[in-house]
Simulated assay, not measured.
Amino acid sequence: MEPILEVEGISLQFGGVKALDNVTYHINKGEIFSLIGPNGAGKTSMLNCISGLYQPTSGSIRYKGQEIINMKPYERTTLGMARAFQNIALFAHMSVLDNLKLGRHSLMSSGVFSGGLYVGKASNEEIAHRRKVEEVIEFLELQDIRHTPVGTLPYGLQKRVEVGRALALGPELILLDEPMAGMNNAEKDMMSSFILDMHEVMDTTVVLIEHDLGIVMGLSDHIAVLDFGKRIGFGTPKEIQQNPDVIKAYIGEETVI
């Protein structure tokens, strides 16, 4: 199967602290890939390296065969990558629709006049981008709250909007940093369904950080496990559950699924 992302020998150091230590794995196009490990293992640091928020100390990250290690975050977005954050970073006073439109407009290539007036080519672009936003609203079942300020929404819905803003970019690869954190079981089930549909219906490659091992094992095609910044496991869910290093460091004998 063709890899869409190749991470090779990535290390990240802050002063005397090594957040990542020579981490290598690959992600196949069209799969659901999970990155797991104890708190402080380096999972979010890894997503920050992939999305361009952090500059690794050493190593290589290739997206569809192209080295992206020195690219800015917005340049990676134009290549087909998007990121949803663990801590919600929405504009609370703006509506669901406007938050999604704002994310999508980062792809606008035509000039925009002040006040939101679009003319000529920009007008055609705006129509196309608005159509994509509407598709995301329908996909995530946000129709009834499209005009609601996101700051007034329950936490679970805000998390869904955060994912929606990343999806509005139409990514080939989406990075989801704990999209189910703080959710109840019903909300987790719904988000799991959306993630499966991203994979199966949208043909989007999903990179997921999630602490609920039941969800991880049920959704993932492959998993990489980090501990103290090092990769201690990489493989299918079955292989991960049988990996003695992973069991010792993270899963535990009592909780093997």
Rank of each mutant, 00 (worst) to 15 (best):
M1A: 15
E2M: 02
P3A: 05
E8R: 15
E8V: 08
G9P: 07
S11P: 14
S11R: 09
Q13D: 12
G16Q: 11
G16I: 06
G16K: 12
K18Q: 15
D21M: 02
D21V: 14
K29Y: 06
G30V: 11
F33M: 13
F33E: 01
S34C: 15
G37W: 10
N39L: 14
A41Q: 09
T44I: 08
T44D: 11
S45F: 01
L47D: 01
C49T: 02
S51E: 02
S51L: 10
S51C: 10
G52I: 05
G52N: 04
Q55R: 07
Q55T: 08
T57Q: 00
T57I: 05
S58L: 04
S60M: 13
R62L: 13
Q66H: 08
Q66L: 09
N70T: 09
N70P: 00
M71W: 11
K72C: 00
R76T: 00
T77A: 10
L79T: 08
A82F: 01
A82Q: 06
A82Y: 04
R83I: 00
R83K: 09
A84Q: 03
A84I: 00
F85V: 01
Q86A: 07
N87G: 06
F91Q: 01
H93F: 01
M94R: 07
S95T: 14
D98I: 05
L100D: 04
L102W: 05
G103E: 02
R104S: 03
L107Y: 06
M108N: 11
S110R: 14
V112S: 14
V112I: 12
S114F: 09
S114D: 13
S114G: 14
G120E: 03
K121N: 00
K121Y: 05
A122R: 10
N124R: 15
E125G: 11
H129E: 14
R130M: 13
R130S: 07
K132C: 09
V133W: 03
E134T: 12
I137T: 06
F139E: 03
L140V: 09
L140Q: 00
L140M: 09
Q143F: 04
D144Q: 12
I145T: 15
P149A: 00
G151I: 00
L153W: 01
K159H: 05
E162D: 01
A166L: 06
L167H: 04
L167I: 11
L169A: 08
G170N: 06
P171K: 14
P171S: 15
E172S: 00
L173Y: 02
I174M: 04
P179Y: 00
M183G: 07
A186C: 10
A186P: 07
A186Y: 12
E187D: 10
M190G: 12
M191L: 13
S192W: 08
S192P: 13
S193Y: 14
M198R: 05
V201R: 13
V201L: 01
V201Y: 00
V201A: 01
D203P: 08
T204Q: 13
T205L: 07
V206Y: 05
H211Q: 15
D212L: 15
G214S: 08
G214N: 10
I215L: 08
V216A: 01
V216M: 05
D221G: 14
A224Q: 05
L226S: 04
D227Y: 11
F228W: 03
F228M: 07
G229N: 07
K230F: 04
R231D: 02
I232M: 06
P237N: 10
P237I: 00
K238S: 14
K238R: 15
E239P: 06
I240C: 10
I240Y: 03
I240S: 05
N243Y: 03
I251S: 08
I257W: 03
I257F: 05
